[in-house]
Nucleic acid binder design. Structure first.
Lengths: 222, 222
DNA sequence: ACCTGAACACCGTTCAAGT
DNA sequence: ACCTGAACACCGTTCAAGT
């Protein structure tokens, strides 16, 4: 068998391969599972090999997060109607962060990441299409992006807390709702009354309701 | 000098003392500085003594966070006009999280904490005063609380990243703005154009602008 | 009941040595 | 240029032993 002239190992390490492995570990076992020991085991390599392609753990997490966000932005097919497109993009981010809770934590730890560029550009562009006046554009885009990432991050924290078991989720929400319901209605009128809705609410729908409130507020700026 | 009958050491450990020391360490050196070793040194005690009052590190962080939020809610004197009161409460939370960035990270890690009860109650009550219809109340309160905590958390992440030096902050924002300005205006029209505003914007004002957009959106629900 | 601190089972990161 | 893996300087947490 004849060796190729440039004998490059097809299974050689690269930042991309490492980042993909890291993302798989994060999806499997959450943030605590991503250790350099787990990574070297999965890639059958040594620590130095990884550090040769990646500056440190923080760099690794950032790169994995960028990859997820970039994929969402690439896949988010956006229709013509800007209002609906804003809902689609927002929901795409929400779902991606729900599926990869570590992304939510990372984004709130390091905003201004390159991946967020695409998000700002897309959302800002759609706000322009909505005729938001120029002087309000920056604040409106900032607020909406922050709302989307903020809520998605909070939701991801819950997802992380509750594993992926639906029964767990109901039990947890039920327990919190019971605590809320047990509060003195004179001292906590709102929370006491909101207990039922807490038990029954759908995070995704509540998220979208928030986006709609936002868009309604932005519409008053026109 | 006569010993009191129950000779309780006034300098004895208690959860409150431990939590206060932890908060001081967190304020001084950030989240990475809070270790059980630093805590035992500061309190001149052993690990076991701390574990006797506190379940683990996560419990400690949660308790310290609850204390900060409870203080904000206690101190937030709220005027009669609900719209203004909502802005005051929101700003109080923003400022507290800005002053104690670790609170922002912790809140997005563990929502549904007891401290947030007070926040939901206050904000929910003010929305009732704003005549938000009952069926929209839960979603509106959830969205607003999430917005406030989300943005404050993002802002805190920046604060953590940038230390407390104002020159650092300007240099950092300047660098990001320069990167944004350098982008191809055809490919990134919005971000390219927003670079100037990014350099000049005030986080606190942008936060309040977002709250106002929100309240304007909520007003359309009436 | 409350406290002490050695010990355990982990971390991220470095670096001399290999190919 | 790229990889190996022992070693270092840390962690959070436990627990037998003390008062």
């Amino acid at each position: 068998m004849i060796e190729p002239v440039t004998k490059r190992r097809t299974d050689g390490l690269s930042k991309e391969v490492i980042v993909r492995a890291a993302a798989a570990i994060l999806d499997d076992g959450g943030e605590a599972a991503l250790t350099f020991r787990a990574l070297t085991a999965r890639l059958s390599t040594g620590y130095g090999a990884i550090y040769h392609h990646v500056a440190n753990k923080s760099d690794l997490l950032a790169a994995a997060t960028d990859a997820v966000i970039a994929r969402v932005m690439r896949d988010a097919v956006v229709g013509a109607e800007p209002r609906q497109a804003l809902r689609t993009v927002s929901l795409g981010l929400f779902d991606a962060i729900d599926a990869h809770p570590w992304v939510g934590a990372q984004l709130s730890r390091e905003p201004w990441r390159p991946a967020l560029l695409e998000v700002y550009e897309r959302i800002g562009g759609l706000l322009v299409a909505l005729d938001v006046p120029a002087e309000a554009l920056f604040d409106a885009a900032g607020a909406l992006v922050n709302y989307v990432l903020g809520v998605a991050g909070q939701n991801a924290a819950n997802a992380r807390l509750l594993t992926s078991d639906e029964a767990d989720r109901e039990a947890f929400l039920g327990a919190v709702a019971a605590r809320w319901a047990a509060l003195d209605p004179d001292e906590y009128p709102f929370v006491h009354q909101a207990a039922t809705q807490l038990r029954e609410h759908d995070d995704r729908e509540q998220f979208l309701a928030g986006v709609d409130i936002f868009l309604a507020g932005i519409a008053t700026l026109r």
